[in-house]
Design a protein around this nucleic acid. Structure first.
Length: 385
RNA sequence: CUCAGUCCUUGAGGC
């Protein structure tokens, strides 16, 4: 059984969840009884591959076979349910495990807090953190990172700062992950100077910034239009020996777009191409958005035409980006036109598509149309969030 | 000991 478990785990780590599940079948054929770890490894395998529903299925399978999932398995389940974005269901699992007699541990709470952060529900994250304290469950540096990240995503720097002071008061040593989360609070909050201060503070404390830190600092300047400062961060990053990655470039691209610097944006893209980065759909979507933000609809349409003929292929995010640009610019008709062409391309509107389209009319205060679209969205089977 | 934390395109208004 140990051998089979190791094999399943290995397949999982190698991104081969289906091989892992075959191994489970094999071991059952060989009359070898799987244990809880077996199922846990299998769930991890599916989680790693992004097959969250399959991971949930394994949990059900395990229960149907008469196993009582332990706390570790429950944690994994909460993780995968949260990854599908179904907060409500994750909460249900959390309560269910409570009533099954398990006491949530530090990981359980951290997972939940992290999930709330990703969903921009910092108040829920905060409440759960308080509940954790009341339950005398000790937080870890992971927990604090998740909490500060939840605040960061909403730009609540005062709250993030308070949590930061609190963790230090409790004797925790902030690490680079923690500092990065705090940095992002200032970045998203629109305080690049504050982010700069955190950046200096972490170095002073002997915690060396990593490439993530540089990306966040760059974005702090970029998102308020200070593209030259953003460029300086990139330069500093290179000088320190960190290679800018795709995220770095996309952040800088947005910085240029916000500042209306189309020439700089195009130069960046051609530098990227020269550097061997592939101009895939994702990158082109970013570029479309950049053109749109900068008000260069001509360039935007030109690129979109190329994408419609398939190089690289337009996806639903391409349409969402364009619909959003037109919506913001007040070009409701263009937005509608694009929306109608989605199905012709064999694509399907998603939650963002519908919301963007509603946004077009919301901006014009045509609320009746919004309700209309909302109804259509429900009819099409798209669940609102 | 295992499980959990930070950065990349697209969603109105407000802060």
């Amino acid at each position: 059984i140990g051998c089979y478990n190791v094999l399943i785990d290995a397949y999982g780590n190698n991104g081969q969840p289906f091989e892992a599940e075959k191994t489970l079948k094999l071991m059952r054929d060989m009359a070898c009884i799987p244990n809880e770890d077996t199922f846990n490894f299998l769930m991890h395998a599916y989680r790693k591959a992004g097959e969250f529903e399959k991971a949930e299925d394994i949990f059900s399978l395990m229960q149907n076979l008469g196993y009582r999932p332990g706390i570790l398995t429950y944690n994994t389940l909460i993780d995968v349910v949260g990854a599908t974005g179904n907060c409500y269901k994750a909460e249900k699992v959390f309560e269910e495990m409570h009533s099954a007699g398990y006491v949530p541990n530090t990981s359980t709470y951290t997972l939940m807090i992290s999930m709330y952060g990703k969903k921009r529900l910092s108040s829920k994250a905060e409440k759960l953190f308080q509940r954790m304290r009341r339950a005398q469950c000790p937080p870890s540096i992971f927990t604090f990172t998740a909490l500060i990240n939840a605040y960061a995503k909403e730009g609540l720097c005062e709250k993030a700062e308070k949590a930061f002071e609190y963790l230090q008061y409790l004797g925790y040593q902030p690490d680079v992950y923690l500092y990065n989360a705090l940095l992002e609070a200032y970045s998203i909050g629109g305080y690049p100077a504050g982010a700069s201060d955190v950046f200096s503070a972490m170095m002073k404390a002997g915690c060396m910034p990593d490439s993530v830190s540089y990306n966040i600092l760059l974005d702090a300047f970029g998102r308020v239009g200070l593209y030259e400062d953003a460029e300086r961060v990139l330069e500093a990053m290179r000088k320190t020996g960190f290679n800018p990655n795709l995220k770095t470039y996309m952040l800088l691209l947005r910085a240029y777009a916000k500042a209306g610097k189309v020439e700089e944006a195009e130069k960046l893209v051609s530098d990227m191409e020269a550097g061997g980065l592939e101009m895939d759909t994702f990158v082109c979507n970013c570029l479309l958005n950049a053109y749109g933000l900068a008000g260069r609809y001509d360039k935007m349409e030109e690129l979109f035409l190329k994408m419609q003929s398939g190089c690289p292929k337009a996806d639903i995010s391409t349409y969402n980006t364009l619909i959003n640009i037109f919506s913001q610019g007040g070009y409701t008709l263009k937005a509608e036109e694009l929306f109608d062409s989605i199905r012709k391309e064999g694509l399907h509107p998603d939650l963002t598509t519908w919301t963007s389209l509603m946004g077009a009319y919301a901006k014009k205060k045509l609320y009746r149309k919004c309700v209309n679209i909302f109804q259509k969205m429900l009819n099409s089977g798209c669940r609102p969030d």
